[in-house]
Nucleic acid binder design. Structure first.
Lengths: 326, 326
DNA sequence: TTGTAGGCGTTATCAG
DNA sequence: CTGATAACGCCTACAA
């Protein structure tokens, strides 16, 4: 009984193999507790049946959804995923990319930090199948699965403008990635179209540790905002801490909205309006695009845009305007 | 310039190598864009510098903490982690174990589903370094990092008994694992010591989708409970939904406590008392034990117990007893 | 100090 | 239908 015969058997290429041979092999495998070695197989076949996923920051709830979605998709295709958390750190991102490539992964899904253009370009040059998720990087010709952040933000702000709000704030993390920049753009666009002024005092892009500070600054303004849009669940956590501490009434004194559905929003008193991005579907799409690239099927290098929706709850529906402390 | 010279260089074994040789190698590497192939290296060295982590259910907040903790630890040791989510499904758990072994991981950290004894035993027999986390499996001689769930639950229930509560409820997921069984035991023990009756109507181990139902059942009792301990964040979510729906006043009508710190608890109105398990430290410990096993250092096959603590907040501090609707 | 040869476990190819 | 052989890319001896 030769290695190659066993190999045939293990890989179910035994159309013709003699019954007794099959049986003998099966018995031997059982008896010796033989388990094929994926590493050797990968070396020979130059395929690992594994993809890498680099998440920007696992603390965001949506990261969990995305990684879960991709894993689910791969599970059905007998592909495996290695999930890495770059922690919003370009160096860590680079290290992980190199590690994953050294491990000969067949493809890569990245929520890019946006500070590694050369790295991204080199992936492209090396012909590594790559799909970006959530964030678009200008001029790189890499398929990217995103939401139209500008549009949905404009809609959200419009909702408030139509309800009579005139002093609307947006708080986001630092503007390092397209997602946040587009949200700011949508915010400005909505104000512009309504011919409202764009006040620096209402528009903040700060680190999480500074969110409560800018809230306090706004609270002390002569004309504090009557509504705040939090650009992520992490911003919301800080915002809610502040609101509780200051005993601010939502929505009467201050209206709220937040990007991404989290339990904290749904179960807050009052429930908080959320902007929902279909991250599960987006993860599936990214995985499916990547599989196509790996199989050398043609894939367009473009933005694959998904629709976000606003789930209106009590927190954004101010009843009596111009009565707020903020 | 031969492969071995390059290998020496890449592995930094160039104490004696001639300066010009070093330079030549470095240049060649740069020019050809050479990247060592981990797969081939692993095959030769029979070491992948990778460990597998199997999480029971990624929906629990603590799973995120644990996987993050292990990843952090490994990052410093140049080890990589492959994280798998068994979804509380023993079959999935088994499939992942086999996959990870086929990938020749050097060790395994598992939050076991407890329905794969044979599998666990076979790992032991095959001499695969394994560490269990959060859940203890009787009679397997595998190092296990846990919290003393019985003790901390007893303390928590005692806190309420001392405050005058007489009708205390515990809601947990089905009793498939040691963690939950121990919590029930601690609950019973506290009641027994206080010579209070153990009522089936107050003690529930049900699936998440049934949590609201048992809450409703309890609400309709002649003597509804005055306090409920939720045995996980997932139970809490269901419980809070119910409480909001029924407009139950916490803590005046019903006192609350929950296992595991989550934003929902901290930021709930009123803030919810949490039982905090040091999962980050536990993850670090599990990783460090595993590394020791991989390095063939002696590791005791025992329970490594960590202390949980109770973070008392408003939700558990009923002011006026025996006034509740529950 | 550098180069050569053999082997890690698997599979593809081709001869028996 | 089955088995021998080479090769995947790297590393370790050992030889030069």
């Amino acid at each position: 009984m030769s290695p190659s015969t066993v190999s045939q058997y293990v890989n179910k290429r035994y159309h013709y193999m003699g019954e007794k041979t099959k049986k003998k092999v099966a018995e031997a495998i059982e008896e010796l507790g033989f388990h094929p070695n994926t590493v050797a197989r990968s070396l020979k076949q130059k395929k690992t049946l594994t993809i890498g996923v680099i998440i920007s920051n696992i603390l965001h709830r949506y990261s969990t959804v995305v990684s879960r979605s991709i894993e689910d998709y791969c599970y059905n295709y007998e592909y495996h995923t290695i999930i890495c958390n770059a922690d919003d750190n370009p160096e860590k991102e680079q290290k992980y990319v190199e590690m994953l490539l050294a491990k000969q992964i067949d493809g890569l899904i990245v929520v890019p930090t946006n500070h590694n253009r050369e790295l991204y370009q080199s992936l492209k040059d090396r012909n590594i199948p790559v799909v970006f998720l959530d964030r678009y990087i200008e001029g790189l010709e890499i398929p990217t699965v995103v939401v139209d952040n500008q549009k949905i933000t404009e809609q959200a702000i419009n909702h408030w403008i139509e309800a009579g709000h005139r002093r609307i704030s947006l708080i986001t993390a630092p503007l390092k990635v397209s997602t946040r920049i587009e949200r700011v753009e949508g915010y400005k666009q909505a104000l512009r179209k309504a011919e409202l002024p764009i006040e620096d005092t209402y528009l903040h892009h700060v680190k999480m540790k500074d969110v409560q500070d800018v809230c306090r600054q706004m609270l002390e303004l002569e004309q504090p905002p009557t509504a705040i849009l939090a650009a992520s669940d992490l911003v919301l956590v800080e915002l809610v801490k502040f609101i509780k501490q200051e005993h601010i009434q939502v929505p009467d004194e201050l209206a709220l909205m937040v990007f991404d559905e989290v339990h904290l929003a749904e179960l807050h008193e009052p429930p908080i309006t959320t902007i929902n991005q279909p991250f599960y579907e987006m993860g599936q799409k990214a995985a499916s695009l990547l599989m196509d690239m790996i199989d050398h099927k043609p894939v367009e290098d473009k933005k694959y845009e998904f629709e976000a929706t606003i789930n209106i709850r009590e927190s954004s529906e101010t009843k009596l305007l111009n009565k707020g402390v903020l």
